[in-house]
Design a protein around this nucleic acid. Structure first.
Lengths: 213, 213
DNA sequence: TCGACCCTATCGATCGATCGATCGGTCGTC
DNA sequence: GACGACCGATCGATCGATCGATAGGGTCGA
């Protein structure tokens, strides 16, 4: 029960932080969503900010782990970048609330906590930067501004969390391969998608987030 | 004087709403930034939300006007999309605070005000949708999911507001043409950038936002 | 020229409401 | 009878907003 309630509080917080923002969400909103009194809330969490920090760190950690797992052993930059894009898009489509909190509420963190979050984020973006730089070196990607292109692609993929609906016309599979296609094209890559890598992503995703893909 | 002070309040609000969020910004923060007492603030504005609504509507209206102006008379879809991308990127690079408020604080609006903002936003995205659909029909763009591609591209360009610095290595010109290049590539367009259209964008931008480009 | 009158700009003080958080308790259950 | 789960009541602080007051400058008729 206790573990379950703790998870319910977390999910209530993710939902409300994502839709109303951290500062726009009151302790009483949180309590109502989690079906608890505001006093009981504090049996399962520290301060409101502790809750935000935990959500951000866990979400980012999961994403980073998944990305490392999905690209482990892949030496081909095309496969690596395709995997990173697919994974990022799937994560944002499956967990839109979590990812929107991570992407939009960094400004609500106090300095100490922000440092940890930024560190995780940097490690994650490093994976993208390496894949792109390796591809440029290998001559399969072409871009005059690798860093700018990386920022552009990551942002493009993150946008999925703002609009994707599983009841819409696109399956997760179609979504992921469409974005992977867009990314490879933007990098002027002439090689086709690595379909096996995408399949591998699907398995990593269903393992890490425990959902069928 | 009065007009000047009113503008100072507006700029203080844009800065704080962009960095700390609408709900994260207090009336007293606003007053301090604008160098007024919190009481005097109300001589120049209605409620705090009125201020947010005004900022959003003005910013969006300016962007929409600029986009219509930049694409007016252009029949070629490649030129139109190139212009839209360049304009969007320039606006986000020049006015990062304004655009971040528009992009990230919609959730803070109450239903009535939100409707107006969404309407403006829809009209703006319609320009993008038309350019892309026309290009697909004309056979110069290739994408199986025009709507998804549009969302991806807009989001990609909006990200500029999160990181661009005028003191960085890229000029506004380089930034705009790099993004236009990325967009055309993502649409599998084989035609080159319309450099004249980009030049036109520069002029529209310096007119609408009154800055040298 | 002079006061009477007003209007704009400004602020200290303060309003009721709500904020995040804590207290002292009451329940079952083991 | 000890403990985990839970809550009504309430804390001090802060929220957005308003109050009455003051100072200064322009516009009058006398």
């Amino acid at each position: 029960m206790a573990v379950n309630t703790r998870e319910r509080v977390r999910q209530a917080a993710v939902k409300l932080f994502a839709t109303k923002g951290f500062h726009g969400t009151g302790i009483r909103d949180l309590a109502q969503e989690a079906e608890l009194s505001s006093a009981s809330l504090y049996h399962y969490m520290g301060t409101k900010e502790d809750l935000l920090v935990a959500i951000m760190n866990e979400s980012l950690r999961r994403l980073l782990d998944a990305a490392e797992q999905a690209t482990a052993g892949l030496t081909d930059p095309v496969s690596r970048l395709g995997s990173l894009v697919a994974l990022h898009v799937l994560a944002h489509a499956i967990q839109p609330d979590d990812t929107r909190v991570v992407d939009n509420e960094v400004h609500a963190l106090t300095a100490g906590a922000r440092a940890g979050v930024v560190e995780l984020r940097d490690a994650y973006e490093r994976l993208w930067a390496d894949a792109i730089e390796d591809g440029v070196t290998a001559g399969v990607f072409h871009t005059g501004q690798p860093s700018v292109t990386r920022l552009a692609l990551v942002e493009m993929c993150s946008g999925v969390a703002r609009w994707y609906s599983p009841s819409g016309p696109l399956t997760l599979d179609q979504l992921a391969s469409h974005y992977a296609e867009l990314a490879l094209r933007a990098l002027a890559c002439e090689r086709p998608l690595d379909v096996a890598a995408l399949q591998n992503c699907r398995e990593v995703v269903s393992g890490v987030w425990r959902v069928p893909v």
